Amino acid sequence: MPRLTNKQRRAVRYLTQSALASQLSFRVAFQAADYLHNDARENWRDFLDRLHTGYPVKGVGIKAMPSNLKAFDADDGGFLHLEEDLNPEDASSELLSFPYQAASAAYSFTLLEGYGNDLADIVNPGYIAGRRAWHHGVHGDADLKDPTQLKKAKEGFTKPFNRAAPEVKNYTVQRLVSLKRDRNAFMHDAKVGVDFQKFHGMVMGTIAALHFLVIPTEKQLSVYPYFDYHAKWK
Rank of each mutant, 00 (worst) to 15 (best):
R9L: 12
D141P: 00
R41A: 15
K159F: 00
N117G: 04
G61V: 05
S22Q: 12
V223I: 15
G140R: 08
V57F: 04
P160S: 09
A105D: 02
M204T: 09
A133T: 13
H139R: 15
G77H: 09
V223K: 02
L112E: 04
N162W: 06
V168P: 04
T158L: 04
L4D: 07
I215Y: 01
A21L: 02
D146F: 02
L48D: 03
L111R: 11
K145E: 14
L80W: 08
N124Y: 03
E167V: 09
G205H: 07
D146C: 06
D49R: 15
Y55M: 07
A71Q: 14
E218M: 02
L69T: 13
G114V: 04
S67K: 09
L213K: 01
A74S: 12
T16W: 03
L86I: 04
F196R: 11
A21E: 10
A33E: 15
N170H: 10
A129N: 13
R175S: 13
D76G: 01
R13I: 14
K219C: 03
E89S: 13
K63V: 08
Q101G: 01
V194I: 15
K180R: 13
G193H: 10
K145R: 15
F161D: 01
G116F: 00
P88I: 10
A190G: 01
A129C: 06
G77Q: 08
N117Q: 11
L36G: 12
Y229N: 09
H188V: 09
P99E: 10
R13L: 14
L20E: 09
D195A: 12
L111P: 04
D75P: 00
G77P: 09
L48Y: 03
A33P: 06
A165T: 05
V60M: 13
D146M: 01
A71K: 15
A142Q: 02
D73W: 12
A208V: 05
A231H: 13
I207T: 13
A153I: 04
F109R: 04
Q149R: 08
V203E: 07
R10P: 00
